[in-house]
Design a binder for these strands. Sequence first.
RNA 1: GGGUGCUUAGCUCAGCGGUAGAGCACUUCCUUCACACGGAAGGGGCCACAGGUUCGAUCCCUGUAGCACCCACCA
Length: 940
Amino acid sequence: MLDKSFNPAAIEQGWYERWEAAGYFRHKGDSRPAYCIQLPPPNVTGTLHMGHAFQQTLMDALIRYHRMRGVNTNWVVGSDHAGIATQIVVERQLELEGRTRHDLGREKFVERVWKWKHESGSTITRQMRRLGASANWEYADTEGRKGGYFTMDAKMSRAVAEVFVRLYEEGLIYRGKRLVNWDPVLGTAVSDLEVDSEETTGTMWRIVYPFVDGPQDSTGKDGRAVKLRGMTIATTRPETMLADGAVAVHPDDARYKHLIGKQVILPLCDRTIPVVADTMVDPEFGTGSVKITGAHDFNDYGAAVRHKLPMIVIFTLDAKINENGPKQFQGMDRYAARKAVVAQLERENFLVGADPHKMMVPKSGRTGVVVEPMLTDQWFVRMEGMAKDGLDVVKRGEVKFIPEHWTATYNHWLENIQDWCISRQLWWGHQIPAWYDDEGRIYVARSEEEAKKKAGGRPLKRDPDVLDTWFSSQLVPFSSLGWPGETQDLETFLPSDVLVTGNDIIFFWVARMIMAARHFTGKVPFREVYINAIVRDAEGEKMSKSKGNTLDPLDLIDGISPEALLKKSTAGLMKDDHRERIEKYVKSHYPNGIPAFGADAVRFTFASLATFSITLNFDLNRCEGYRNFCNKLWNATRFVLMNTEGRDCGVEGETRDAQPVKLSFVDRWIASRLQRVEAAAAQGFAEYRFDNVAAAIYSFVWDEYCDWYVELAKLQLQSADAAVQRGTRRTLVRVLETSLRLLHPITPFITEELWQKVAPLAGKKGATIMLQPYPRSQPEKIDEAAERDMALLQEWTAAARNLRSEAKIPPGEKLLLYATAAPAVAEVDAALSALQSLARLEGVKRVKELPDSTAPVAVVGDARIMLYKEVDPALEAERISKEIARVDGEIAKVKAQLANPSFVERAPAQVVEQARARLAASEQNLQKLQDQLQKLRGRK
RNA sequence: GGGUGCUUAGCUCAGCGGUAGAGCACUUCCUUCACACGGAAGGGGCCACAGGUUCGAUCCCUGUAGCACCCACCA
């Protein structure tokens, strides 16, 4: 006997371990069609957040669905070494010990990161298991830790080196001194994508650079003649003037045209620079003349190259003024230098203006520090050719984005792609497989031995830099399957079927995977990319730690007390000033903490909210509603078990043959509805409309099976006919058993728990629901007649109940229902006794005319029905008048439509017919209501 | 400066050329032997705004406004 209500913690315990131990998650090396999903590998350092939980719910639902459909599924999972993120975490730990990574040295530091990875790297995999992810943990796992692959594993690293060497040999990787985005705190280059612009109000300073040969004639904006002391430039970063190579003006700018080629004095510095002409200058902006700082500005870099200007570097790698700057500024941080430069300019009368200015400041995505364009030696991947191919495969439809509009985002980026800076000046990551000899010659090789061989024995030094983390992540779709080896897995599981991921990594990861897989395997990495919504809080706000509106999926599953939640929300805060705000938020939003909804309810919520919308506002109230749904399912099962266990369910058993069964229109109806929900589920999965899958099953189970079928089954179980009882029991268990299988991909735990008990009664054998066939719709079982009859019964029931309610008849009081006609169904007797039971009637009495009474009357189809209970005629008259008004409105609307000749002529015949039928029915209804009203009035 | 998406019931969201839907919340009644994490009956919406196309628009088109996100080297 099941407990009275479902307790997620109790049932969710144990199943996962049993499934995993039994090896149900592994792929099978057989010839069945394959279905493969690659998990976007989470950072080893990370913990599961709502985005992960959402994404993984969808992936697991797809995997479970396909597994049940008999496909050879392989959910490839793993984790990412996450170069910068991980290094920062371990460096913070060292900081607490008062040390830096340099105190340890590279080798010891990397050792320490590995140690930390082993200790805490399993957090997220544990959380995924709690969520029920039926992932293939053992697959591609080189460490034997059942956590999937790790991007720094020997196996995965081998593919990284191979790719680097091949790209280098093909001339697609090159090394060069280029201007790159530099994070002065981390001391490394970062890619364009890792830089986020942030609007800031800064200052636009105007500075005059005097002409070497004295003031010059020119014209002002208004055309009047003026004398120019020098070129006035505008800048937001005055400290970079120390590295200026020229002043540029537009070649057609009448004010400055004649001054091109003149020399100006660079203030504060002991040198002069030329005035050059360049079309990049916008004469309308600022003063129309621009300082050119080739080594410290991306825009100016191009101009400096065009005009062959010297590239002067004035910053050290930690953004302090170096020896190339004037003595008084040397060693100053860039912002201190800015102040000092401005002060001296002002003192020496070079500063002619300073205005507030809104601008976009580039900041490092990791540290939030303003990046400095820095001229350094870096490795790059040439993107042009691969990008073109990446565009082509999407254009040809070999890779499809869902929703489709993301294709535009993808295309736009690839059409404007820049070469990719892949070297990072970090210690944690794949070290670049390049060696240098004493003369600076480069040897790129798969291993040190190979490099030595190539160098002919010259002493070699390895490049200290590591690769951008995405360089290895992009290979995952094939490196996880054994590439560069030629494996059966590659043959079977590449391309994978769908990638489920967030739109934030379309550039970082999705595009690069497509390009890399195409380049190295000739195949696309996946056929479809489902871009899932971004999870926000219920008010649509971005979840962030500093707002306190983050939710931990595990807290939703297991519940959390208000005290623990408060403590957790404010733990490890960087800034103390957030504390008060967070406490306020948490206290007001979760005064009672969070109840334990269970993994199934959380998963169901995610599925229900998985529309094609760009954001998903996670609403705890909906989560609660779906927890209630789980309870409903639990109790429906409880009812079914109570009525079927140990009884004859009309199912063939091992020791007996099935006895004859009789099926009523109600039995046939629910079986018919089942076919429709099965079709809806299949369609939903095919379209990635998980919300539709969830909604279809929800309403079937609750609104149809529980509300109607179970209620009517109670009646049928009291039948004197054993065959009717058998038929009812058989339908009860079979429909329930099928519903459990339908639901399993979304709510794996509760369905497994219940299936174990229900399946034997339905004549099903099997160790687990996981491997049972997913229900498929059988259109031949759709019974239109039964559905029509049931719809009528429901209509009659609703009308009768409404009469009860309107007349305020207490639930205990049973009355006769007078009806001028019987429901137009095939099994009238069965329908009438059903009606009697559902509407709690004493009976149904057929009459020619309704009794002369003030009792409320309703119109159902051809019949008028009445519960014989005298009520205040005035109230009843009012009720009927309201109803008449409603029907009147209806009639007016349809009449107007039909009176329009062009509607009747041009609308499809079917639509016109429908309107006419509606009009006829409404008019009939109106007539009966008016009769009734008149009668009521006559009584007064 | 470009681009994308959104605007439907109090809240979170479906829908989509032909009588406006769900969950939660709300009102009234009910502890009836699966379930009060429940049952029954209700209330609630000029489908952002303005034009256009159409017999007919919440839905298609064009604008406007608001919100969100992405891209972009304007000093």
